[in-house]
């Protein structure tokens, strides 16, 4: 069979194939990615869209957790000081119930109880970034105000939820109505009752003990309701750990999906270079082969 005399065309085809593999290997090595355009692996590219979105969500959840955490910590430490203040009020009440105290001494205790009430009030009206943290969702104004009948709650009982992991939400506030003014355990009512009982000359030691018990009940309510903050912070901590490991996993997935195996790419590059050199060498040696070279110039005149 007659073979194609156009060997150079075959060589050119071989060289262009080698060039292409060389370019691909080089691109993969410089970008570190196996999928540089969608067509490199369409289904990997489509999955990468989902992973990139999940990874962005993780980042966002971590940012949200960090901003919620600092608010919750502020609230928690404020509540801590309220609890300490209430403990002091109970001590004062117990002291007042001691029958040996003069009316003057009790009046002094009463005024300290009133100042504790002020202190707790300022905790209850704590604001963080311009919003009142114990007002439920009516957080644009102070939740506790002094009115004719005593201190009243003008916040609401609503709780906000924030998504902190995909599909998982967490409550991020405890309304004042659970902390300071729960039904039958109002901190301000109890403190006001204790102060007025101490102040009144007609109060018996039993009256004072009862008023102190009222404060104790409110204290217990506040102390148990505020555990919300501690446990929420724990949960946020757990989520943070989870999200960090999720983030790592997603990075790993991305790398498996669209990243390049550097060893493989380096080998591909070396192979492509070898193939191209071989093609070049073959082309160079083919060019010198021709029958014309072997016919002496004067062969026609012999």
């Amino acid at each position: 069979m007659r073979i194609s005399p156009y060997i150079t065309q075959i060589e050119l085809n071989a060289m262009s194939t080698a060039d292409q593999s060389e370019q691909t290997a080089l691109l993969q090595m410089t970008t570190g990615k196996r999928v540089n355009v969608d067509s490199d692996d369409p289904s990997a590219a489509a999955r990468e869209v989902a992973i990139a979105s999940q990874s962005g969500d993780c980042d966002q959840f971590l940012r949200s957790i960090s901003s919620i955490s600092s608010e919750l910590q502020t609230a928690d430490s404020a509540l801590n000081s309220a609890v300490t203040a209430l403990q002091r009020a109970i001590t004062l009440g117990t002291e007042g119930a001691n029958g040996t105290l003069s009316q003057q001494d009790r009046a002094a205790l009463a005024s300290e109880v009133q100042s504790i009430s002020q202190q707790v009030m300022s905790v209850a009206n704590l604001s963080y970034n311009g919003k009142y943290v114990f007002a439920g969702t009516a957080d644009s104004q102070p939740p506790y105000v002094a009115a004719a009948g005593g201190i009243v709650y003008q916040g609401n009982g609503s709780v906000n939820q924030v998504e902190i992991e995909t599909g998982q939400t967490i409550a991020v506030n405890q309304p004042g109505s659970e902390l300071f003014s729960a039904a039958g355990a109002s901190v301000f009512q109890a403190l006001s009752d204790l102060a007025s009982t101490l102040q009144s000359s007609s109060s018996t030691t039993d009256d004072i003990a009862n008023a102190t018990n009222e404060v104790s009940a409110a204290y217990n309510q506040l102390n148990s309701a505020r555990t919300f903050y501690g446990s929420t912070l724990d949960q946020l901590n757990d989520s943070q750990t989870f999200l960090n490991s999720e983030q790592l996993q997603l990075t790993q997935q991305t790398s498996n999906l669209v990243g390049v195996d550097m060893n493989q790419a380096a080998t591909n590059l070396a192979n492509a270079e070898t193939a191209r050199n071989a093609a070049l060498q073959a082309a160079a040696s083919v060019g010198s082969l021709s029958l014309f070279n072997y016919l002496s110039t004067n062969s026609g005149t012999s």
């Binding site: 999928v35 969608d38 590219a45 489509a46 990468e48 869209v49 990139a52 979105s53 962005g56 969500d57 980042d59 966002q60 959840f61 940012r63 949200s64 901003s67 919620i68 608010e71 970034n129 311009g130 919003k131 957080d139 644009s140 906000n160 939820q161 924030v162 998504e163 991020v172 669209v258």
Partner: peptide
């Protein structure tokens, strides 16, 4: 594109901004 630019990334960013707002809605 499949990753850090384009429509996909903008959609994610939008929903992420909502999550951010949920921590302090006002």
């Amino acid at each position: 594109p499949d990753d850090t630019s384009g429509i996909g990334q903008q959609i994610s960013s939008f929903f992420q901004s909502l999550n951010s707002l949920s921590t302090d809605p006002s």
